[in-house]
């Protein structure tokens, strides 16, 4: 055997010795300590990930509760404004009131348009708003002087549309309040 081959065999033998030593490493306390640390590390990583997921879910749900409460407050204010219509209301006054109601209502209901519990009522509310706009446009005065000649014309034109709007807003308000309660109950049950 040439010296180079003999050297290679010696090296191989040393490697095999080390492999055999490592194969019996489970017999040593260092092996078990390292394994324990590894498993503990895995457990804590999993636990941290789960807690982060739960915290995110809780934050989302809290945000949704706040949103429902905001919508409920906004719709209550709109319902109060709808009651401000009176027989001597002027065209400009009715137009401003309707614009404000329309803007506020459309802003708060738009995120819930696809909600299966609310979409029917939201559609009715949109239709009622459109009908009121249409009725109001039919009493746009030909001149300011002429508006005073027919003092209750605006009221007669929009009275029933406002009554419809009031009813639909009240029904929608009820649905949002119920949603808020159901949501709170589901959250408390966890």
């Amino acid at each position: 055997m040439d010296p180079q081959t003999e050297e290679a065999f010696k090296r191989l033998d040393a490697v095999l010795q080390r492999v055999l030593q490592d194969a019996h490493a489970w017999n040593t306390w260092e092996y078990w300590l390292a394994l324990l640390i590894g498993v503990a590390g895995l457990y804590f990583a999993w636990k941290a990930s789960r807690e982060a997921h739960e915290a995110k879910q809780a934050a989302t749900e809290a945000g949704r509760t706040v949103k429902i409460q905001t919508v409920t407050i906004e719709l209550t204010e709109v319902a109060q404004k709808l009651e401000r219509i009176h027989p001597d209301i002027k065209f400009s006054e009715a137009r401003d009131l309707l614009s404000e109601i329309s803007r506020r209502v459309r802003r708060v209901i738009s995120p819930f348009e696809k909600d299966p519990d609310l979409e029917g009522k939201i559609k009715s509310l949109r239709e009622a708003l459109d009908a009121t706009h249409s009725s109001l446009s039919k009493v746009r005065p030909s001149g300011q002087a002429k508006e005073t000649e027919v003092p209750q014309a605006v009221y007669y034109a929009i009275e029933s549309d406002f009554a419809t709007l009031t009813n639909v807003v009240a029904e929608l308000l009820g649905l949002f309040e119920k949603k808020g309660i159901d949501f709170g109950d589901a959250h408390a049950g966890r």
């Binding site: 065209f91 039919k138 009493v139 746009r140 002429k146 508006e147 000649e149 027919v150 014309a153």
Partner: peptide, 18 residues
Amino acid sequence: AQANPTTFFWTSTPPRGR
């Protein structure tokens, strides 16, 4: 006379009412 697209009025002479 027309006050708006859906309302008409008539004023008496002398103007005692409408």
